[in-house]
Design a protein around this nucleic acid. Structure first.
Length: 161
DNA sequence: GCCAACGTTGGC
DNA sequence: GCCAACGTTGGC
């Protein structure tokens, strides 16, 4: 039996790589490099599958917000940037025969008509248990429930007024 | 294996 | 730019 689709939230600094950069990328697809946290890596390595849907979150943004959705199009494989000295996320301890850091590929699905800001997320009772909203939460890749995902997508599509 | 020091994330 | 919270490092 097919495994149930899972839902995720991935953070990117809007200044660094925004959903608009993804929209301009070839095939509207990119590799998600730079994850250097074991918990986040383990989510990608062990649980992320092709077809899983992802909330694209802008951190350190004005305002910080979920900006849209994307879909996993390649499962975890070695992140080549860990071996490149000039890369921001270069890891001098990474061994090519056993690379610790992985990445996935994501493809744009939709840019929200109305980005859903952190302040809005905090006001929604159905979202109160989200990892993102936990005090001190710093994970850059984290699971969300289908209910949370659907709630945020609905907000992002915007209401007719 | 403890834990202090340090570095990073990310909201504000 | 500040700083709280957290992860990582390294001395012991």
């Amino acid at each position: 039996m097919a495994r149930a689709k899972q839902y995720w939230l991935m953070k990117s600094e809007a200044e660094c790589f925004s959903i608009h950069d993804l929209a301009k990328a070839p095939k509207q697809t990119t590799y998600w490099d730079g994850v250097r946290n074991y918990q986040a890596r383990n989510f990608m390595r062990d649980q992320m599958k092709i077809g899983d849907e992802v909330l694209f979150y802008h951190s350190n943004a004005e305002p910080s917000a979920v900006a849209g959705t994307s879909v996993i199009v390649a499962e975890a494989y070695p992140d080549h940037t860990q071996f490149i000295k000039t890369e921001q996320h270069y890891d001098p301890k990474a061994k090519p025969d056993n690379p610790p850091w992985l990445m996935v590929d994501i493809k744009l699905q939709a840019i929200f008509a109305e980005p859903v800001g952190l302040d809005v997320l905090r006001t929604i009772p159905a979202l109160k248990d989200m990892e993102l909203l936990r005090r001190g939460s710093r994970l850059s890749v984290m699971p969300v429930t289908k209910a949370e995902y659907d709630t945020i997508v609905k907000l992002g599509q915007g209401k007719k007024r």
